[in-house]
């Protein structure tokens, strides 16, 4: 076991995997989540997320939808077929709050959504609604 994971034991926090292809959005999201007291692991797109997720063992995934290689919906579909991630909370970042988009996100297997632009309150509320 690495010293890093030993360290984890004494400092157990909730880990959130954020998936976004835009570095500035990733940073913005990370800054907001760290402020809220969460540990953040980042991935650049769906493929990266699939490679990262097992090691990161996040409690929640927040993913953008439009991304190269594998988009947010594709990512969720691939996660949901794995028993381990079947009921893990996943929030999608969307720029639109239309019912159609929400329906689409739900059909893809998302637990909920965060409409961009988000503020910390909005982020905290969304997380509170999916995380025990």
């Amino acid at each position: 076991m690495t010293s890093q994971s030993m360290h984890k034991e004494t400092r157990v926090a909730i880990t959130i995997l954020t998936v976004d292809d835009s570095p500035s959005m990733r940073m913005l999201l990370k800054a907001a989540l760290v402020d809220l007291g969460y540990d953040v692991v980042q991935a650049e797109d769906g493929v990266d997320a699939l490679e990262t997720i097992d090691g990161a063992a996040p409690d929640l995934v927040i993913t953008d939808i439009n991304m190269p290689r594998l988009d947010g919906f594709g990512l969720i579909e691939q996660l949901r077929v794995q028993d381990h991630y079947r009921t893990m909370p996943i929030l999608v970042l969307t720029t639109e709050s239309s019912d159609e988009k929400k329906q689409r996100a739900r059909a893809a297997g998302a637990t909920g959504w965060i409409v961009k632009p988000f503020d910390p309150e909005k982020l905290a509320a969304a997380i509170r609604r999916v995380l025990h």
């Binding site: 959005m25 439009n66 190269p68 970042l93 720029t95 961009k116 632009p117």
Partner: peptide, 18 residues
Amino acid sequence: NTVFRAVHSIKGGAGAFG
């Protein structure tokens, strides 16, 4: 799709930074 994504990303950031 790439064109769409590029514009979409700019829109997202523009919203985030006001």
